[in-house]
């Protein structure tokens, strides 16, 4: 297909992993991340936006993934799960002392901007466009998140280098 960016199956083949990893960075749970991935592509099928090119499609998918992951996190049964924790399967633990573990220890609102910056390597302007926020708000969030990550990783300078 010439315009592969308008073929949902092609988009899933290229970007399902990215959508899954963004969701994981937000939720920290494989099961939730797989559900978010399904929901994102379901929304793609429903909306069928006409993308200009591959970058446009990728930005749309990342934005919807961010919204879906936030929705998942806000679902009422997620909010008070501490008393239910014994009944729920334990989430897979990321590598102890690693960067991912530190990102998952951040307050939720900082995780997606950090993920988009360090994993997807988007610029501040691109993150602002994906998240529908001002560049100033994104810069502030990145600044605060980096400070928290430095604090979380202060005992391992090799990992915190570059923050």
């Amino acid at each position: 297909m010439d315009q592969w960016w308008n073929d949902p199956a092609e988009l899933a083949g290229r970007y399902a992993g990215e959508v899954f990893r963004l969701a994981y960075a937000r939720t920290g749970r494989r099961a939730d991340s797989e559900d978010v991935m399904q929901e994102v592509f379901l929304r793609l099928l429903r909306a069928r936006p006409a993308f200009r090119d591959g970058d446009h499609a990728r930005a749309w998918l990342l934005r919807v993934a961010s919204n879906c992951a936030n929705d998942w996190f806000r679902a009422p049964w997620r909010r008070r799960e501490a008393p239910l924790s014994d009944a729920l399967p334990a989430p897979e633990a990321p590598r102890p002392g690693g960067a991912l573990e530190a990102v998952l220890a951040l307050p939720p609102k900082y995780r997606i901007p950090i993920h988009l910056y360090y994993y997807e390597e988007l610029s501040v302007a691109e993150i602002a466009a994906v998240l529908g926020r001002s560049e100033g708000a994104v810069k502030t969030q990145l600044f605060r998140a980096r400070a928290m990550l430095r604090d979380l990783l202060k005992e391992d300078e090799d990992v915190s280098e570059g923050l």
């Binding site: 199956a9 899954f20 797989e34 399904q38 690693g98 991912l100 990550l149 090799d158």
Partner: peptide
């Protein structure tokens, strides 16, 4: 370095074959 470490941690994570089958 943080970015390299973060990418390495995440690159080991991908949707399960069952999830990809459901998506397909």
């Amino acid at each position: 370095m943080f970015q390299k470490d973060y990418k390495r941690d995440l690159s080991g994570l991908s949707p399960s074959p069952a999830a990809l089958e459901r998506l397909d």
